[in-house]
Design a binder for these strands. Structure first.
Lengths: 195, 195
DNA sequence: CAAGTAGTTGGATTGCGTCTAACAATACGC
DNA sequence: GCGTATTGTTAGACGCAATCCAACTACTTG
């Protein structure tokens, strides 16, 4: 029996091995100066293997959060026309529940050292847009006007990403990310969900 | 005397020539299937020249709006600690003032035909993040809490980009983009600027 | 006509991301 | 034990975006 349970060749490497190698190099040389080949060389695998584990270089940082965001988007799509503000906020809280220190958290805390400023703006923007779209769709499905839906979507998505950033930057200083997000979402109550 | 007034070799092409060639091809073949080489070939210039006019392929679509966003960001940075909600909204209104039909407007209207869905999410996300950051910085400079600033930033930025999208999609159906944005920003009044 | 200036061009380079066909290591039925 | 299916690794080639540079070209001005 294989360690993973089923047949076939056992994995020679792991996401964690690659992620560690990548993070080391990002800290040493910076993100841009580190090529995928560099990462795989340090991890002792071939370049091809990298893309068996990650879909892109930035995916090393974001795969954890992306997975949770993906779930949230699916949940939001499942809401249908019954979407209420509380239902949406409930789903968003799950995104950050029990979030653990990540490559992303490391990157957010050492953004300057990694030369990540631009890359992070780009990447957070993408996630912001994705989440924002999903929330906005849910709002529209609930009968809310297009532009109001867009604004609600962006506000909610920003609350999530801001909470992640604050949590990552301040370590355990401000409590769990869930608490941070709850506080953050509270601010949006000023923006009524229904027209 | 040269057409531009000064010395040197006159331009053989123009942004407009290239943008037109690009938009044609995007409509015919889709965005992804169109390479920069394709564009320059149709425009009758060398591939190198493309990057004398645009910084990237997507810049063909976004350069108009990016220029205005760039101005807005500079204005926002100039606000200092005196930033008020009205001052910020005044700056944002300038972004869309007298906006004219663009390659971007064309792309937003024909997103499906151009196969632009993913690319547009990516690109709008980037602009959303940029504008959002700038507004959030202004808010923080005015003494507003970090997370509230992020949410305000995202809401304002989303209002701008949503207005652009609505304007582009609906043609002149809903009035000038400035009017659309004014309506859109009105919704944010529910989110008080000051803590 | 000489010098300066602005623009164009080909070509080389780097790196990301995709793809495929070959190869290696394991489990399982026999 | 021996084949076979399965799963994973790998080398290599590919297309493309984007950067850089040195050579060249077309204009202006003195």
């Amino acid at each position: 029996m294989n360690s993973t349970g089923r047949a076939g060749r056992p994995k020679a490497s792991s996401r964690e091995t690659l992620a560690e190698a990548a993070c080391e190099l990002f800290l040493e040389q910076g993100y841009d100066a580190t090529s995928v080949a560099d990462i795989t060389q340090r991890a002792g695998v071939s370049r091809s293997s990298f893309f068996n584990y990650f879909t892109s270089k930035s995916d090393v940082l974001w795969s954890g959060v992306d997975e949770r965001i993906g779930e949230a988007i699916r949940s939001l799509e499942g809401l249908g026309r019954t979407a209420s503000g509380d239902a949406v906020r409930g789903i968003l809280l799950v995104v950050v529940r029990d979030l653990e220190p990540d490559p992303l958290a490391l990157a957010l805390r050492n953004a300057a050292a990694m030369g990540l400023q631009d890359e992070l703006v780009r990447d957070t923007g993408l996630r912001l847009a994705r989440l924002s779209d999903a929330v906005a769709s849910a709002a529209r499905a609930a009968g809310i006007d297009v532009m109001r839906a867009d604004i609600l979507g962006a506000a909610h998505a920003a609350a999530v990403l801001s909470a992640v950033r604050v949590w990552a930057e301040q370590g355990a200083g401000r409590g769990t990310p869930e608490v941070v997000l709850r506080e953050s979402l509270g601010l949006i109550h000023d923006l009524p969900w229904s027209a």
